[in-house]
């Protein structure tokens, strides 16, 4: 399994995402310019130039026509994928830490950081007929968060609910009709770094600094599985075809300079979805992994690391043949 190494960013990768078909791979980094690549051969298709700060989060709508990015320059930008031009920009009071298109892509959500004297806030915006007036139009819904800030968020199934992961490890479920909290659980002890839906959106996986990733029911937030490691987990994804999950993480970036790559454990780690048993590791990054994503066909996966590289791995035949006895 020789990976494609995508070298286009100058700083740490913050998030990577495939489009629905999986032919394109989008990546963002702290260097302000999100990139888009052909996932097949790793050639860069283009860049999204316009942000002034580190880009923390990205998303692509299901038609691969529009692209969303939130950045440390206190702005959220909506882009046209085909031309790479900005459709609209929303200025915020603090950095945008998480953003997501809804299932229909009629709406999008983003959350701002708790900093510079401003509270963390969730905004839900209408992006149906978005144009340059996007910055002036008011959001559909604003939810101020008084407690620990939102560190990760995803839409629930069918555009009706919103799931937010928080700095203290708590997960909240919101009803978008009323803007009220439906339920909340606290299964993690530390900040939730990433949340990703399974292919059918009935389950989601969380990655936390408390060294675990956990699988939840996306409807009733029931804890289904726990995947334990001995390092902070920054990102986790569920395979669309097999009962596998992949976890990426490693020693905190701030501690890395004092330790060697060997002790940092910057490997992608594969676990069985139901047995919670680790069965494989993929080495390669020389800094912690910040984001992992499965290709929608489940035949390859990618990881983006603090080292600034995106690595696209095509699975060998042995991966598909490997089975657990039960």
């Amino acid at each position: 399994m020789k990976p494609l190494i995508l070298h286009g960013h100058e700083r740490a990768i913050t998030q990577i995402k495939y489009n629905r078909e999986g032919d394109l791979l989008f990546s963002s980094s702290k260097d302000t310019i999100p990139n888009v690549w052909y996932s097949l051969n790793g050639e860069r298709l283009g860049t999204f130039n316009g942000h002034q700060g580190a880009v923390w989060c990205i998303d692509i709508d299901w038609t691969t026509t529009r692209f969303l990015s939130g950045a440390g320059d206190n702005s959220l930008k909506l882009w046209d994928v085909e031309t790479g031009t900005t459709i609209g920009t929303i200025s915020t009071n603090s950095p945008v830490r998480a953003c997501n298109f809804s299932y229909s892509a009629n709406m999008a959500v983003f959350a701002t950081d708790k900093s510079m004297g401003h509270q963390c806030e969730i905004h839900i915006i209408d992006v149906r007929n978005a144009d340059e007036s996007l910055g002036k139009s008011s959001p559909i819904l604003r939810i101020p968060i008084n407690g620990p800030r939102v560190s990760s968020l995803i839409w629930g199934a069918l555009d009706e609910t919103l799931l937010t992961g928080h700095e203290d490890g708590e997960i909240m479920q919101w009803d978008l009709q009323t803007g009220k909290k439906i339920s909340n659980i606290k299964e993690h002890d530390k900040v939730i770094m990433d949340m990703q839906m399974s292919k059918d959106a009935t389950m989601f996986i969380t990655a936390s600094k408390d060294h675990t990733a956990k699988l939840f029911d996306s409807d009733n937030l029931m804890l289904l599985k726990t995947y334990k490691t001995e390092r902070p987990v920054n990102s986790a994804a569920v395979s669309p075809i097999l009962e596998h999950v992949v976890l990426g993480g490693g020693q905190d970036a701030m501690d890395v300079t004092t330790t060697s790559a060997r002790i940092g454990k910057f490997d992608s780690r594969f676990f069985h979805l139901a047995f919670e048993e680790e069965f494989g590791r993929v080495k390669g990054h020389f800094g912690p992994i910040n984001s992992v994503a499965f290709h929608p066909d489940g035949k390859s996966y990618s990881s983006g690391g603090e080292d600034g590289y995106v690595r696209v791995h095509n699975f060998d035949q042995s991966y598909f043949e490997y089975g657990f006895d039960y």
Binding site: Y103, N106, L158, D200, A201, T202, M203, L224, F275, Y326
Partner: peptide, 27 residues
């Protein structure tokens, strides 16, 4: 573990199939 998990998944997949018209509507 697998038996328990499969039972849960069957139920959820059934629900998911039932929701198909609403997904089509949204997209």
């Amino acid at each position: 573990l697998m038996e328990k998990f499969s039972a849960y998944r069957q139920k959820r997949i059934q629900e998911w199939i039932e929701q198909k018209p609403r997904r089509l509507e949204l997209r």
